[in-house]
Design a protein around this nucleic acid. Sequence first.
DNA 1: GCAATAGTCTTCGTATACGATTTCGTACTC
DNA 2: GAGTACGAAATCGTATACGAAGACTATTGC
Lengths: 247, 247
Amino acid sequence: MNDTAPALGTNTATPAAPRAVSPAPVTHTASKSEQAYAAVKARIVDGSYSPGYRLVLAKIAEDLGVSVVPVREAIRRLEAEGLVKFERNVGATVAGIDPTEYLYTMQTLSIVEGAATALSAPLIGPADVARARAVNAEMRECLEHFDPVRFTRLNQDFHSILFEHCPNPHILDLVHRGWNRLASLRSSTFRFVPRRAHESVDEHEALLRLIESAADADVIEKAARLHRSATLDAYLAQSNAGSVSAR
Amino acid sequence: MNDTAPALGTNTATPAAPRAVSPAPVTHTASKSEQAYAAVKARIVDGSYSPGYRLVLAKIAEDLGVSVVPVREAIRRLEAEGLVKFERNVGATVAGIDPTEYLYTMQTLSIVEGAATALSAPLIGPADVARARAVNAEMRECLEHFDPVRFTRLNQDFHSILFEHCPNPHILDLVHRGWNRLASLRSSTFRFVPRRAHESVDEHEALLRLIESAADADVIEKAARLHRSATLDAYLAQSNAGSVSAR
DNA sequence: GCAATAGTCTTCGTATACGATTTCGTACTC
DNA sequence: GAGTACGAAATCGTATACGAAGACTATTGC
């Protein structure tokens, strides 16, 4: 379907080596619509457009040197993907950080990512495990002088290695969408709950052990799912104790 | 109060989409874009546009009494949903029945529907269970003079009761999308594998028992997932006695 | 001084128009 | 007779234009 492959990337340690499946079929064909989609998506994911940012069609069109029509299409696609919220006769804004939304997204991701990881597991070779372990080592290092943003990026790299082999493209797409949604809110959970970062690294190692030992798909799925929902729980516990709760 | 809508006396050709699996956001304001989206989606889901059908923008626009621009947007949204396939400079076609695609969709659905059902379970009251049981009774009846189409519709109704209470709208949305994709290929699995229908009815009852007894979420999820993947397996076993995995 | 209302201004929604690309048919040549 | 090349028709892609709806502001009345 859609989903231009990158977006998940920015990976320093994992240059998407394993498979040449990477769709770079942009054969001199880049429709304006496509351009607009990619451009806006990139800006959302990289944080240039932060949540709540008002996406004015005419302005974006001008920035990109196109008319509003392709931009509208792009926005529509992003809306369907959940990256943008659209209100009739009012306009589009970058989808928000609403804690409720965060909860939904994390829960959904826990499920689809768990499944994707379990489905990938049999296809993950020793080389992949080694790469993942290297990333995890970096994460552990990163714990010293804790940098939430860097940590989050590494976290993404780590999990990418685990689920990218998923043979079911639909599920993989859902995982990507979930990650993108999270990426749009740059404030990672780890910023709020640094303690969770430590546990996270340990759980990563446990996950790798399971994969190495060719554990049951069920077991891997459950572990991957719990790994994520534990992060969610940590966030919830924190936010309840702390300031903003609201709904 | 608004809605003077002169000149276009012939419009509003779409009176409340014929009960697709997804909710109809029919506020009293229906932009042309919405109309087009609902209309095309309805036609795909109800089979007027069968898989492979070529969706010509101009023709649809004329049928609906609008211009092509709103139709384009609608098509884009349907594309993001996976109901249509779009090729640059060529056009859109209703997404196909490709067995591989079927496999992917069913697998994905088994996962998200399983999760949705498990999350819904605690919110399902005796009244709901009773309704579901009534539907299942109809299905059992339906086994006598087997009618695959009717059976499939009842099957959808049954599962809808089980997952519609899902508190996570994202997951619920994914379930709807999965069902819609399946709906677009009118040939239900049960047409090919009537025997599966019998098992299915029994599994439904088992599922209801689990929900009634407030079984563990894990147990319910696994049961719901297996229920669906068993249907998939039945299809696979039937359709090709040879090439199992089909890449 | 505050609130309600009217007017303006921004921005969206859709129609129409035209250029670009693909596809299909036909004729011509080997 | 078959294959290729040229051309026409169909269809998509995008720009521009105009009407409509919501938001913002200023003015007026209490």
